[in-house]
Design a protein around this nucleic acid. Structure first.
Lengths: 165, 165
DNA sequence: TTGTATTTTCAAGAAAAAATGAAAGTTTAT
DNA sequence: ATAAACTTTCATTTTTTCTTGAAAATACAA
């Protein structure tokens, strides 16, 4: 397999995986493209490589920056903006975990707290509260796991975890 | 807040959260409905509660069964099928992790292996291989974390992890 | 076997999400 | 200040995903 072919394949794979995770296919493809590109790319280069419109390229690049996994880079003498992806995949992983937690886990926790405020002490109410409490419990356990992933050093963490298994 | 109101709110919350994770909103709502229902529900009851068609109810219930988090239950003297959700949320969590890993992480690992088979030893090729290796590394680390979550007893795991933090 | 209850399938329609492209907005150089 | 280079926005169109509902398949009872 040729290098360029492999890069294309990678971009496609990344794109289709993303859709399973509620992430826009094009956004993932832009990310993959930037990952496999040695040099920073301009919007025009992204448009050309992925055959997408300017508006689409712009939107997705900005969203990737919102996620904190792509950065803008300026070249001397050039007015265009260029973009680079963070190549440290462990970093990218942590960043995505961090963002998704902020965007989804935290709102879920507040919702669950609200739902705890039901009136009545019937058997049904108790069962419902039990469910909510179970959910809260699992949520906070997931939080602990994620914290561990985010906050600790990659190698230290893995050696510790492997010992536990 | 009244119990029924809280249950509805829960169903909505669960449904909208699901869409962020690439899961069909209705499927999540059916799941939530079964979670808050004490008794097993028939397809007709699900249709009525969520105002959806028979085909839709059927498809989503079966998909929930594919995920292994909803079970069919037969009542004596009734020809209809009834459905119950696993109420043990930690179990549900583990089951979903297990399934997603099988469906997504494993195919990703094979793709990455394929992509490793590129020819050429240019600087570009080496960079690409490095990226693939980094991805493989993170993937297998995620695997370790998930294994830990899946295979160990809930309380034992948490006490150990908390010590690490 | 025939009829009835129930589940499943799937083509067509509806709804939601994503992409386009041109106009408006910015920034920078002269 | 003007113009050129570039970025952003957003109404419209396109694509994708989800839902419907009726027909086909299946299961069961008489």
């Amino acid at each position: 397999m040729k290098l360029e072919e492999a890069k294309d394949k990678f971009i496609q794979t990344w794109g289709s995986l993303a859709t399973s995770w509620g992430i826009n296919r094009t956004m993932a493809m832009v990310h993959a493209l930037l990952l496999v590109s040695e040099a920073p790319l301009s919007t025009d280069e992204i448009m050309e490589a992925l055959l997408i419109s300017r508006g689409n390229a712009n939107m997705n690049v900005r969203e990737l920056m919102d996620w904190g996994i792509v950065k803008k880079e300026l070249k001397m003498g050039e007015r265009k903006e260029f973009f680079v992806a963070d190549k440290d995949i462990w970093n990218v992983f942590k960043q995505i975990v961090k963002e998704r937690r902020k965007r989804e886990l935290e709102p879920l926790v507040s919702s669950l707290e609200e739902l705890r405020q039901i009136d009545g002490k019937t058997a049904d109410s108790k069962d419902f509260l039990k469910l909510i409490d179970n959910l809260t419990g699992v949520t906070s356990k997931a939080n602990v796991l994620l914290d561990l992933a985010i906050k600790s050093d990659e190698n230290w963490l893995m050696s510790k975890l492997l010992k536990l298994l």
